[in-house]
Every structure is written in structure tokens, then in C-alpha cells.
Amino acid sequence: MARFFMELAYRGKNYHGWQIQPNAITVQEVLNTCVGKMLGQEINIVGCGRTDTGVHASYFVAHFESEKLPLGTEQFCYKLNRFLPRDIAVYSMTQVDEQTHSRFSAINRSYEYHLVTQKNPFLQESAYYLDKGIDFSKMNEAAQVLLDYTDFTSFSKLHTDVKTNNCKITKAIWEQKSDRWVFAISADRFLRNMVRAIVGTLLEVGQEKISLQRFCEIIEAKDRGLAGTSAPAHGLYLVGVDYPEALFIPKHQRVCCL
């Protein structure tokens, strides 16, 4: 059996996240169905991670196994995209070593959270609108503190099956881009709901509901109940997944989600 990596993107609005679940449509289910019909076999596509209901991915990597792609990788992608719904796009397929795994071989992941402070009817489903006064400089002070910690239990969804809540964050910054503010964060791994919980708590700093010292205390307490409410899903994008070059070199230039 050959293993193939797929580079893809999707809008999360119409899906209950990436991973298959009962009685709810997911991105993984749609891809399994479409790829399986094209290959004439049952397919289980494995993603580089999970995204929650409503979360988008402007860059996502997944893998599946098959004897071969009957049309070749480029033609297979072309045919598959005609078969897929408009809110899912596959950009490339690359055969990789059978030991290379889309999730476990990844060494870095990057997310962006998009926020607008002025009402825009064209961004209602792709950015979080918040018109209250926000101090982004204070939020950036708090964001830099994240790089000093490794245990992010306070920003993790409760009762998950992970063995550790430790992550190494290498980037966390708010930047103004065009008509919005974008929070960019990168780490070796992320916990369930982690980015949205961090954003929600940073917004409390920016609205002066909590101090920078309190923000640090929340992290150190390792208690999800002390952190802020998770920011809405529709503002969040997975934008990057990195692998050692010896295992996988991306073919596709990542989609801009601005």
C-alpha cells in the first residue's frame, strides 16, 4: 500500500469539525466518501489534527493509503475537486514514506484568529466582530508571556484523552492587517480548544477586565474554570503545518484567508 499526503483547505461553517462523529457532517467524512468513491474502496483519511465545529483551515494536511492513484496525483486532485463541495479544496497529493504520518510527524502548527472592530457584513462568517474598546498593546504584552510557559491546562478543553497538556509556543502576537486584527500563534502542538480559550482570555486583558498579573496567575493555576470564555469558532483558522524536509516538502503555496 502506498501512502499519500494531501494539502487542502476548507471553510468550517457547514461542518462539525474535522473528525468523524455520529449524526453530524464533518470534513473527514466528506473526504472519505469522495476519495473512496473515486478509488472504489473504503478509505480512512487521517488528519494532521482536529478542528472544532465552525473552525476553518486555510492549510491542512491529511494522509490516506491506497494501492495507487489511477489518474496520477495532479489529475486525481482535479477530478476530486470537481466532486467535492465548494467549501473544501484539495491542492496536492504527494506519495510519502509509509512511516510518515500527517499528525505525528508534524513538528509545528500555526493558527490565526481574525477579529474586526467595525461591523462588516461581508465578514460575519469569517471574523469575530467586537466593537468594545480593546487595548491591543496590553494583549500583546500578555501574549508574549505565553512563551514563558509550557503547561496550558487552563486553556484546554476538559476531559480529553491527551497524556500531557504541555506545549511549546514559539510565536504569539496580535497584528493589524488591512481591516482586521489577527492573532498569530505557533507551537509544536495545541490542546483541544486551546487557541480560542487563549484568545478569549487575552480579550479580557484587552478590555481591562483582568490584569497582566492575573493572566499569569490563570496560567499557573492550571484551572480551565479561571480562564476566559472561548472566542467564537468562526474567527479561527489553521494556517500552517510543518514537517521535517526529509519527510515532506509542501507543493502548495498556502491560501491567504484575509
Rank of each mutant, 00 (worst) to 15 (best):
T51C: 09
G40W: 11
I43N: 02
Q21I: 14
L203R: 00
T160S: 14
T26R: 09
K168R: 09
I45R: 01
T73Y: 05
L236R: 06
L247E: 13
R50N: 05
R189Q: 00
L84I: 12
A106D: 02
A246Y: 11
F4T: 03
V239R: 05
S92N: 02
G40Y: 10
Y10M: 07
A231E: 08
S154C: 14
Q118N: 07
E42L: 12
D97V: 13
S110M: 08
E65V: 05
V90S: 03
G228C: 15
R86E: 12
N23K: 14
F64H: 01
T33D: 09
S154M: 15
E112N: 10
I173P: 00
D135V: 07
E125G: 06
V96W: 09
N81K: 07
V255M: 04
L31N: 04
E125H: 13
V255G: 04
A142M: 01
S137F: 07
R103T: 11
Y111I: 13
F4Y: 10
Y149M: 12
L39I: 12
S230W: 12
I173E: 08
R189E: 00
C34R: 11
I25Q: 13
E217L: 11
F5I: 05
T33V: 13
R82H: 15
V241Y: 05
M6C: 01
E175T: 04
Y243H: 09
I25G: 07
K177N: 02
L80T: 07
P85S: 12
N108H: 07
K177I: 08
G133W: 06
H101P: 11
Y111A: 10
I169M: 04
M38I: 13
Q253T: 05
I218E: 03
R180W: 01
K79I: 15
N166S: 07
D242Y: 07
L212F: 06
Y149R: 08
F4K: 01
A127G: 01
E42Y: 09
T170N: 06
E204R: 11
G54P: 12
F248W: 12
F76I: 11
D161L: 15
Q95N: 11
F64V: 02
Y111P: 09
F190Y: 03
I185Q: 00
K251S: 08
Q253M: 06
V116F: 03
S154W: 12
R82V: 15
T229M: 10
F5K: 02
S154P: 08
Y129Q: 03
S211G: 06
A106S: 08
V239I: 12
G228V: 15
